[in-house]
Design a protein around this nucleic acid. Sequence first.
RNA 1: GCCUCAGUAGCUCAGUCGGUUAGAGCGCCGGACUGUUAAUCCGUAGGUCGUAGGUUCGAAUCCUACCUGGGGCGCCA
Length: 515
Amino acid sequence: MYGAHAGTQKLVFRLIRIRKHDDCGYNLYFRGLNNDDMSKRIEIAAILQNAPLNETITVMGWVRAFRNNRFIALNDGSTFHTLQVVVDPDQLSEDTLKQIHFHSCVKATGKLVESQGAGQAFEVIATEVEVLGDSSPEEGYPLQPKAQSLEFLRENAHFRMRTNAFSSVFRIRHGIAYAIHKYFNDRGYYYLHTPIITGSDAEGAGEMFHVSTFEPNQAPTLPDGSIDWKQDFFEKATNLTVSGQLQAEIGALALGKVYTFGPTFRAENSNTTRHLAEFWMIEPEVAFYDIYDNMDLAEDFCKYLINYVLEHYPDDVAFLDKRIQDMEKNMPMEQRRPMGLLDTLRFVVDNDFVRITYTEAVDILRNSKHYKKGKFEFPVEWGKDLQAEHERYLVEKEFKKPVIVRNYPKDIKAFYMRQNDDEKTVAAMDVLFPGIGEVIGGSQREERLSHLKKRMQEMHIPEEELWWYLDLRRFGGAPHAGFGLGFERTVQFITGMSNIRDVIAFPRTPGNAEF
RNA sequence: GCCUCAGUAGCUCAGUCGGUUAGAGCGCCGGACUGUUAAUCCGUAGGUCGUAGGUUCGAAUCCUACCUGGGGCGCCA
């Protein structure tokens, strides 16, 4: 055990790798590396970027294809691309040859040369090949070198990241996460960690998961039969957070510009391609911002993230684009996407988002041919919330680009949203994207104490639980605004994956917490 | 939670107005070949047709219930 551990440490320290933080690509220093060091492992991304031609190198990775008993396509995750390792079957032991299966882990040492074949620029002529981990189909390895269904791969989530599609998705997911921090950091925002466990159940964003140390059915009770939370760990009822927004407002009213980026939990029994029980959310909150500043921020932020991925992960985007097109070849025309993935992303960053009010949205919908022909299932009526079919019509049929709808009726929105002068609407905004619907929900917050208290009373929000939230209006209050961006929905849009369960490594949904 | 579609070999699917021994491609296994690009070629094996019950002379096929999965809707991000 000790020996193995020491060996690992040695390997780690010998790897001289510098990852520039304003750049997702690799920059390798071959500083001080002699031929002996070259025999230590080099990542494939580095080799392709700065090919040490005619040097003897060592690569380690997983077999993506083994052709002709001679050609191994090796991938180590550092890049979308594989490196071709050429082996001489006569020089390999029978045992080694037999273990070079799809997704076996292989270490190969040899000279890097220009490839004699047509499909790649470089290849390694291997003089040593070692199978670090066999992956025998006979022993039950389920993945095969062909297109496999996303449903099947979802059930094999511990292996699916080894596929082209999922490795691309998760590299891009990382890139977006990094770009989020970069975007805010570059603009003077502070990253605020809001609590995962919350004592408030007034956040009003759906059913919550309870957090308790009580054993089920053994919780102490009060004389009236209700549970005595005073005896629980936190001496009160607690839940997993559904939003960091209320706490983010505390930050905004001290640090000016803050954002949260963390996990969020909803115990809703939602079974759709765009809901998770555990998902990640980004919530900027900005002092002195109104609803219009908020919309500007949302649009700029979305475009930045897309641009970042286009710039830094072009190979992964191109692969996902092609994958979708291949899949859609067998589908009837009307079920295909109107544009390819890459074109869609470019279209979004090259065009202004449409901005309309809720009232205008209702007018557009009611005047549409679609409405007049009775094609909407749900009624379009001022005061009723827009249904998914309505949002889709606006985004996909009417405008064909992202749409920001603002100023919703107050009765269908949360208590903390700022009331407009018409006394009927609040300064709420939803950003709607083609395909996945609502990606952002936000608002200017109600900073006027009397308005907020009145609204809380009307909506039966207990003031005593949110005393600190009201204090923010009593002492040093300021106009402010913010929004919540669904991280997985953003990854969905940028990768073109149609099911949200395929853009998070280990999805939590009703009835499923495997892995 | 509601609606809907599906479950046949390891994977992807065909077969379904009820009728001999349930098929294909890929994968596996055996062999051939060796500058390939999910390599190719030849051959073998592999299935109590999701589970339980029912109808029938006869059920993968029809009916009922349940389980699992996909999609749509609601809730939202």
